[in-house]
């Protein structure tokens, strides 16, 4: 297991080896792939309990049981200019959906800096870290319910 687990380490390895310009270009392309939560999972108005704390881009998270035993992550980002939040959502989904719950539960919010670099405003980093923390919290709750036992 790598530092973060799942495919998240592959994202971190890829992005941390890039210079700032290339990383930004890639993250914009990643954000373009964002697809919001499907209507069969959630529809507007989204429930407050799914809203990511401290995220100025008004991101929402749904974490549902995955076929492989982990979580399937879905996001919505209500701020049309929330490009970083959309990129983070895609990376968390591709990196952690279906990963073992123990790995998801232990993911560190430092991953935000590894993905975006250290030049984030406090507010932006807090919001993105809020997305990571909410994903980890969902995994911890699922583990506490006994879902991680095989």
């Amino acid at each position: 297991m790598g530092k973060h687990g799942g495919k998240l380490d592959e994202w971190v390895d890829l992005l941390s080896g890039m210079d700032r310009g290339d990383r930004i270009d890639l993250l914009i392309d990643v954000a373009d792939r964002f697809r919001e939560v499907p209507p069969e999972v959630a529809q507007r108005p989204f429930a407050e309990e799914h809203k990511v704390p401290a995220c100025e881009s008004e991101a929402y998270l749904w974490a549902q049981p995955h076929d492989d035993g982990g979580l399937q992550l879905y996001f919505a980002v209500e701020n049309p200019q929330g490009i970083s939040a959309k990129a983070m959502a895609v990376i968390l989904d591709e990196g952690l959906s279906g990963a073992p719950l123990e790995e998801v539960a232990s993911v560190s919010d430092d991953v935000v800096y590894e993905v975006f670099g250290r030049e984030l405003s406090m507010g932006k980093s807090m919001g993105l870290m809020g997305m990571v923390s909410m994903v980890a919290s969902a995994a911890r709750r699922r583990l506490a319910s006994g879902a991680g036992e095989r």
């Binding site: 930004i24 914009i28 490009i83």
Partner: peptide
Amino acid sequence: EDPLVYPAGHIPGAVEVDWT
């Protein structure tokens, strides 16, 4: 605030000034 907003598309000819 978001470092991806300017490079993703800005007013033609506009320059970015980043607070950090």
